[in-house]
Nucleic acid binder design. Sequence first.
DNA 1: CCATGTTGTGAACAGTGTTCTCTATTGCGA
DNA 2: TCGCAATAGAGAACACTGTTCACAACATGG
Lengths: 230, 230
Amino acid sequence: MIDDVLTVARRQLGEVGAAGLSLRSVTREVGISPSAVYRYFSSRDHILTGLILEGYTRLGTAVTAADDALPPDRVTTRWHQVWHSTRDWAVANPHEYALLYGTPVIGYDAPPETVEPATRVVVRLTEIFFHAARRDLLTDRVDLSDPAPTPGLREDAESLLRTIDALGVPVPAGLDPADPVRVVNAWSELFGAISFELFGHYVRSITRHAEHLDTLAAATARQLGLPERD
Amino acid sequence: MIDDVLTVARRQLGEVGAAGLSLRSVTREVGISPSAVYRYFSSRDHILTGLILEGYTRLGTAVTAADDALPPDRVTTRWHQVWHSTRDWAVANPHEYALLYGTPVIGYDAPPETVEPATRVVVRLTEIFFHAARRDLLTDRVDLSDPAPTPGLREDAESLLRTIDALGVPVPAGLDPADPVRVVNAWSELFGAISFELFGHYVRSITRHAEHLDTLAAATARQLGLPERD
DNA sequence: CCATGTTGTGAACAGTGTTCTCTATTGCGA
DNA sequence: TCGCAATAGAGAACACTGTTCACAACATGG
């Protein structure tokens, strides 16, 4: 029943967006009275929270599935794959993407159960980079384009490393603590570009979005020391 | 009168956000009947459009004013200044920022009159970079971290260059057509990071947001060839 | 001075999220 | 199999929302 509501709600979300999604309209389609839904969801926002959770999971499985189809050692190809499959999912589900990465509806802090699924893309990016490091696939990054992190940021970096370790991702030995932050930066760059594309901020500048994202993926890959081609 | 409505609306926007902004509540505070506002605005979305226009203008003037206070030749300092004043404005006006750079409310294409104010920050970034190029302040960028653009992207780059030229920004001679795209990328990176901060996606990773933005600004500055210190 | 265009009101409509009372229906132990 | 309790849902009601429309003041200019 909860699934019925969420399925219909996700369909309508894809048509009218989160702002236009009406609880009553969902109940009409499910064939239920508006008040009945309060047995399962405490409020309309609670339904949206369910959709957010579902959305993160769907995006995460789409991206990881695309990456899993590739040989593990082809790290640069995998890196590009994650970037493009993320964008593909966003372009195919713009309203759902906007629900996840647009203006937060609930408040400024997401419900705690959503943070794990929400990290799946960045965790996968980290895994690719760590895998490359463990397999000694990284090229020498003679001229890192980012400066040395400040002490505060170094703390953030180390705490982030511990979080990644706690997630069960094998951390390679002798890692620069700033590297996970670089991956996070690439992640933020990826979603910044997708948001700008979907939200219309690239009007009158970039129109070849797929090619553009490709150059961004390549640039971040080079900054991280992933091999040129594999 | 239009200003009265917009002033009150902006105040309430700062308190409840765009989703919670009520036309009737605005009219109550202005001291007017709900229907009277339809003499000046065709709909609630029209009011929001006015707020968006105002918001872009306010952000733009805040950023350009901060930059104007600096000596023109200190291009790297100016670059950092633009990054930080943008973030400062966003942090001080989170709901207004979300209205501008979060989920679009109206549709997927912004009203045409909003595109000029919306470009002010990226135009200023471009101006700084062009100024540095004209004054020969750029260092040699031996190892550009982004690859050569594809033909399609090169078209985008040249069209973008024409747009910038049409805006009256003096374009330096002998410019790599890909350079404006690099500025656009930095711009997208800036807003991607701010959105991730404000929308709560940096939870459990970055907490020192100002320092973090500083390293991003420095990295993009180096990629563009801005001098290390000035 | 009258007519015309402007400015605002108030009632009404359709729609929303939410709460509450009340009624079926179900499952289960005796 | 009966009876009871837990559950699922319905329906009315409330306080809102954005929007429309007929109507009344009012100012202005010929």
